[in-house]
Simulated assay, not measured.
Amino acid sequence: MKAAIYPGRGEPVTIESVPEPRPGYGEVLIRVSRCGICGTDLAMTRGGAWDYGSRVQFGHEYAGEIMELGSGVEHLRVGERISVLPSVGCGTCKTCRAHGNNVLCEDKPGSAMFGFSEFAVVPQSVATPLPSVLSMSDGALIEPLAISLYGVQLASIRPGDSVLVLGAGTVALYAVYWARRLGAGRIAVMSRSTRREALALEMGANSFITYGENEIGEVVEAMGGAPAIVLECAGAEGMLMTALNHVAPFGRIVSLGFCTSPDPVIPAIASYKCASMLFSVGYSMREFLYIADQMDKGHADPKAIISKTIALDELPATLAMLRGPNEETKVHVTF
C-alpha cells in the first residue's frame, strides 16, 4: 500500500510503498477514506525539538471503513465506518481512569496516527462508529472538533458570557462553534487577516476584528465591555499576553494554541485582573462520542471549513505550499 513517510530532521515527506498492516488482537483494519492536514503536521515535520521522529507514518484527523476484524474485537463489524481517536492510552493508570485523555497516559501512551496511508490498523478502543447521517468528511473532522470542544469546556462558559477568540484557523473556528453551542453571548474573533471572516461569522461569531493599535477599544465596543473569556487559538509568541490585555477582571483564559516557544506574560497584570489561565491538550473518547452523536444537530455545518481536497501523492507538495502564504483553511487527503 502507499503511505506518507516523514524521514525526520525536517526532510521532505515522501510517498512510499509499505507492507499492508494486519490486525492483531483487539484491532481492526480500516481502509482510510479521508485525512485532514493539521497545523501540527506542518510544525512537527520541519525539524527541531518538537518533531514526529525518524521515518514515521503520520496523519491524525481521519476516518475510514473497517475491512477486517482482529481476534477479540467486539461491538464492531466489517463494513462499518469509523472515525479514529489517534492517541492510545492504557486505560488503567491514574490519569486514564480520572480523565480519559489518552494523550496524557502515564503508563503506556501510544499512537494511532496512520491517516496518510491507504490502510491502517487501530485498536478497537479508539474506533468511533459514524452514524448513518454523517459522511466520511464529517468523520475526518471529529478530531479537530474534539480538540476545540475539550479546550472550550475548560472555560466553563456561563449563559451570556462574552468570548474573544484569538486566531482564525481550524481550532479557532471550531472554538467559536462550541462557544456558541455552549451558551456564549457576544463572540468576537481577532486575526491578522480578514480572509476567514465569513467562516468565523458562519460558525457563530458576532464580529471580526483585526489586530492593531486600537484593538482593545474595538473589542470593548464590539462586545459591550472586556470579554469574560479569551480563547487563545493562535499558538504564536505574544498571544498569552494579548489574551491578558483583553480579558476582563476575574476573567478566564484558555490556551488551545499549543505554542512550542517561550511565551512570557507579566504576572502583575494577571494579578491585578485576578485572571485565570488554563492550558489544554488532547481530548477524551467522551468528546468523540458526543460529536459523532451531535454533529448534524448544530447551528452550522463544520464541513464549511474544508477548502480543498487532494490525492495522497499531492501531500508533499501541499505541505510545502501550506508553510507559505496560502488561501486554504482545511485540506483533506482523499483515497
Score class of each variant (00 low, 15 high):
E65D: 09
E327H: 12
Y6R: 05
L240K: 12
R22M: 12
P19D: 13
C105T: 06
I82H: 00
P19S: 11
G53N: 02
I66G: 04
V230Y: 06
L76V: 01
A226T: 09
F250Y: 14
G24K: 01
L149T: 00
S191H: 15
G10F: 07
I310N: 10
A179S: 12
V133W: 12
G64N: 05
R323I: 10
E80Q: 14
S280A: 13
L201V: 15
I82S: 00
F258R: 15
V176E: 10
P316F: 01
D301P: 00
N214K: 12
D107G: 04
S191T: 09
A43V: 10
R180S: 11
R323M: 13
W50S: 11
G298Q: 04
T95S: 13
G10A: 08
G48P: 07
M285G: 06
P19I: 06
L76C: 00
S135M: 00
G204L: 11
A234V: 11
P249L: 10
E327M: 07
A275C: 03
N101E: 13
G257D: 10
E61D: 01
G212Y: 02
A4M: 06
I30G: 00
A320P: 08
V265C: 13
R192A: 11
R195M: 14
V265E: 10
L289T: 08
A268W: 08
W178D: 03
P144V: 01
F258W: 13
G36Y: 08
L29N: 02
P12I: 06
M1E: 14
G91K: 07
A49L: 13
L244N: 04
G64Y: 03
S33K: 15
G298D: 00
K94S: 14
T210R: 15
P325Y: 07
V32N: 06
A188L: 02
N206L: 06
L199W: 02
S156H: 14
K330A: 04
H299G: 05
I291M: 05
V78S: 02
L134H: 10
L76G: 00
G79P: 00
V171W: 03
M295G: 00
C233E: 07
V165Y: 07
A155Y: 08
S307L: 01
P129N: 11
V133K: 11
K297M: 12
C38T: 13
V163I: 02
F250A: 15
A311K: 14
E74V: 15
T170K: 05
L69V: 02
R46M: 13
V28P: 04
A3R: 00
A198R: 15
R180P: 07
F279V: 12
H99W: 12
I30Q: 01
C274A: 12
E16I: 01
S71N: 13
G64I: 05
R46I: 12
A243F: 05
K303Q: 05
C90Y: 06
E202Q: 15
V281Y: 14
G298M: 06
T260F: 14
T242L: 09
T329M: 13
C96M: 03
M1L: 13
G282R: 10
R196M: 14
V32R: 04
S284Y: 05
K108P: 00
E218P: 08
L164F: 03
Q294T: 12
V265K: 10
A275N: 04
L256Y: 05
R34M: 09
H60Y: 09
R252Y: 09
G115W: 08
M239A: 14
P86D: 09
V152R: 05
P129T: 11
P316G: 04
S280D: 06
L173G: 05
G160A: 06
G89I: 03
S276R: 11
